[in-house]
Design a protein around this nucleic acid. Structure first.
Lengths: 202, 202
DNA sequence: TTACATACCGAACGCTCGTTACGTACGTGA
DNA sequence: TCACGTACGTAACGAGCGTTCGGTATGTAA
């Protein structure tokens, strides 16, 4: 019965890429149906055919964001413990044009997410997932003696995410002062500080 | 010659407060002239009388943001060194409703700032000023032996701002998981880690 | 009094937004 | 062949935006 099965998914993928480019350039504030349509050289009606409302489009864009974040080319995960944590955090930083675009979109989404209850909860969940994702590495680090036995891993997880995202924001606004090697060094300074610390007090 | 000197500045201040309330509630995405006018119970024409364009209004709002940040009630600055740094960073965190509103607006402004070249530069400058504002405390800390003599203070400044703002974002999205005492403890964990570290390697 | 600038209101303009309605081309199933 | 559902394009709608404009009231300066 479907006449042209014409890859529906492929079309949605095309739209996704156009949305991605708009977001990377203009942020969520510049994401309009007409901008996306113009970027693709198609009509707005075509967009609505695949995404009935703009909310669907935004929702898909945020889904894309998480997908890109999960599917980005990962550097070799060298070992367990702090080295592995370092690799995870380095993967987050805007060290490449692609990483910059990804983080640009992340930060841009926060205005929307803070204003919209549903997106707000999504974002809180994403952070919780990030923290629990790095916990195993912290546990391994503590097991290997890279962290003191008394270390509060939940606190350290929040600290590590905080350093990383705080660095992301500063780097986005001042890429000249935070080239990749400076970002790496700054992150390493943090890791070194928690690693060589004998006592992370309550 | 001016007929009603009618406090022009007082009026601008009224407008500023209305803008502040809108921003705290809806973010920059919800900042419209009509919203501000409705909040004040006046006409949009009145707004244009004091701020010729919306850009002027936004610029003033960002100026307000910096002013509020500078003029907020500061906790007692106890001493020099890391204790003073701690006080500065605690003043930034969203530990009170007012501080939450201030940070809410900060984060919300990033989408706009990343899209607009002028605002982009302003924001980069603001970060640079923040880093140089905490440098004296780091220098004092090093002088007092709270930091190793080899410590890279520029790096530490970026790290401290990163931890703080990264914590701000997480706290804004999940205030339940980051009540004031948890934020304080997380920040203290960071400070303790840099303080007791014997070697902050390059 | 006249002249004039300020302080505002209310309505409107032109534009862009998300969304909808309508039309057409096309490939399939009967 | 004919009916039908999909895949679009084109055009328009209504709402909301920033901005402009004309009008009125008011208070000072001359």
């Amino acid at each position: 019965m479907p006449p042209a099965p014409g890859d529906r998914d492929a079309r949605r993928e095309d739209v996704s890429q156009a949305v991605w480019r708009i977001l990377a350039g203009k942020g969520f504030g510049g994401l309009t149906l007409r901008a996306v349509a113009a970027e693709m050289g198609v009509s707005t009606g075509m967009l609505m055919h695949y995404f009935p409302t703009k909310r669907d489009l935004v929702g898909h864009a945020l889904h894309l964001l998480e997908e890109h974040t999960a599917a980005r080319p990962r550097r070799h995960r060298p070992a367990e413990g702090l080295a592995a944590l370092r690799a995870v955090l380095l993967d987050i930083l805007p060290l490449t044009p692609d990483g910059t675009a990804r983080n640009r979109i992340w930060v841009s989404s926060w205005d929307l997410a803070l204003a919209d209850d549903g997106l707000h909860a999504d974002q809180a969940g994403r952070y919780a997932r990030m923290r629990s994702a790095i916990r195993p590495h912290l546990e391994a680090a503590r097991r290997q003696g890279e962290l003191p036995a008394s270390a509060d891993l939940d606190r350290l997880a929040a600290d590590a995410i905080a350093v990383t995202h705080g660095l992301v924001v500063q780097a986005l606004f001042d890429p000249g002062r935070f080239p990749p090697d400076v970002q790496t060094a700054t992150l390493d300074a943090f890791l070194a500080s928690i690693a060589t610390t004998g006592d992370l007090r309550d």
